[in-house]
Design a protein around this nucleic acid. Structure first.
Lengths: 178, 178
DNA sequence: TGGGGCATGTAAGTAGTTACATGATTGT
DNA sequence: ACAATCATGTAACTACTTACATGCCCCA
């Protein structure tokens, strides 16, 4: 089943001006990794595949005397990107160890369950900090305002949810103890 | 790099009373798939691995005359589950095509960008409905209240966020048109 | 003169999905 | 008698990560 995972990341990144595999990887690590990761092992082979398909073209360039391949979108590539952007999305996959633990948290005692939520909050707070740091150093790195805003506000919501639940569980625990 | 993905799902599921691979897969499809998926191709081999490791034991059982293997946790298995639940989590991975599109949405015109957000909202609403359906038919299926509550409230937040952004983009569009 | 960044790549491995095969059982 | 569900599994494949190899460039 062809899923086209990296394809769209690369098309989008090249559109944004990332001309080398290295530059694409940087954009991924700085930004898209929060909702779509990619490694060199995917990027370089996929760049060649996309060139074969005629969606991008590479030309020889250089930084000083150091060689690099400079990719740009072809008309077909731009059309493909546009088409993909306008069609409804299907892929939404989450792998969240914190939630998985919350799901199984009835296997530990009440006070310990609070710890599960607290740990979950701590993770979210770490991610939130990283997102805010990106925000602080500006949109310079190519992180569009909307996607970043979404990330920050969602993590704020998550932290808040955890806090509320912690309070509820603590109240319940006291009730039991009393 | 050993990551132990399925291990914890299985340990938790068996603790919850899922005794067969089939029952585990049902719990996964009904519930954990929203934050941690698993397929038969992982579950059955992993069950044998966990038995070898002494974390679960299987015995021959039957439903009528139909054979099945009934797994239960060993003390070591219970200890491992507990240990995992109490330690801080690391894994948080998201693959969200909607957000990826939002990130690259400046490649299309303003009104079209609203469509990107609208599509994103539609997906969230679909998921939200499925979560609410689980809620309606009760916690019977083994979905603990907290994890389900989290899923529902988070998706409500997401839908709301999309709505707010749609309004903002629409206002901006009008401003440009005027 | 050496460390960090730029730049391109691949081999080996892990993780995970899909699609199929098999067959009994239960309820209608 | 038929469909749906229970139940167990695997082969082939796709996707993805990690770790490594290579070497130049720039700046302090």
């Amino acid at each position: 089943m062809r899923f086209g995972g990296v394809e769209n990341v690369i098309l989008g990144a090249v559109h944004k001006g990332c001309s080398s595999g290295y530059a694409i990887k940087q954009l991924v690590d700085d930004a898209t990794r929060f909702f779509w990761a990619a490694s060199y092992g995917q990027i370089y082979p996929e760049l060649r595949r996309l060139e074969e398909e005629g969606l991008i073209v590479g030309s020889f360039g250089h930084t000083g005397a150091r060689e690099r391949t400079e990719y740009t979108l072809t008309d077909a590539g731009r059309a493909r990107l546009r088409e993909w952007l306008l069609e409804p999305s299907a892929a939404y996959e989450l792998r969240d160890e914190g939630l998985l633990k919350l799901f199984f948290a009835d296997a530990v005692r009440g006070e310990e369950a609070i710890g599960v939520v607290r740990n979950m909050r701590a993770e979210r707070e770490r991610i939130l900090e990283r997102l805010r740091a990106i925000d602080a150093r500006g949109v310079a790195k190519g992180f569009p305002a909307l996607a970043l805003e979404y990330g920050i506000e969602q993590h704020e919501w998550m932290v808040d949810w955890c806090r509320r639940v912690e309070a509820r569980l603590a109240a319940k625990d006291e009730g039991v103890a009393a």
